[in-house]
């Protein structure tokens, strides 16, 4: 259940930037290649925010699709799982997106 650690890190990084201000919404970007399950993250977020200025805040998860750049055919293609293969069959690819794990914004009073 590493989502609990992730949720705690979210709370820490938000509080660090918002001080004691009450936070009502937290928006996070979670790439599909990260080992983070949004439902588990939401569950843990409720636990991690209790007793903090984020208590009761809504967590909005924006799951970003995974894309790779293929060095063989020089194209960017979407991938649906961790088997990072280009449509041309090459595994010589660079991840362009899908590994994001970021707090994008918050709603504060």
């Amino acid at each position: 259940m590493h989502e609990l650690s992730i949720a705690e890190s979210i709370v820490d990084s938000v509080v660090q930037r918002t001080g004691g201000r009450r936070v009502h919404v937290v928006r996070v970007r979670v790439g599909r290649l990260t080992a983070v399950v949004p439902d588990a993250l939401r569950f843990c977020f409720e636990l991690a925010t209790a007793g903090t200025p984020l208590e009761g805040a809504r967590l909005e998860v924006d799951q970003t699709d995974a894309r790779v750049h293929c060095r063989a055919c020089e194209k960017d293609v979407a991938v649906t799982d961790l088997l990072l293969l280009c449509d041309c069959g090459s595994a010589d690819v660079d991840v362009v997106s899908g590994r994001e794990l970021q707090v994008s914004s918050v709603e504060v009073v």
Partner: peptide, 28 residues
């Protein structure tokens, strides 16, 4: 208990957005 400490206000009207763009695991 906490549910009763914060009365039924409507904070949404008064909130504003802060762009953070911070990596969640930045500290680690």
């Amino acid at each position: 208990e906490h549910a009763h400490e914060h009365p039924h206000e409507h904070p949404v009207d008064r909130t504003h957005t802060l762009e953070l763009e911070v990596a969640v695991l930045a500290r680690n």
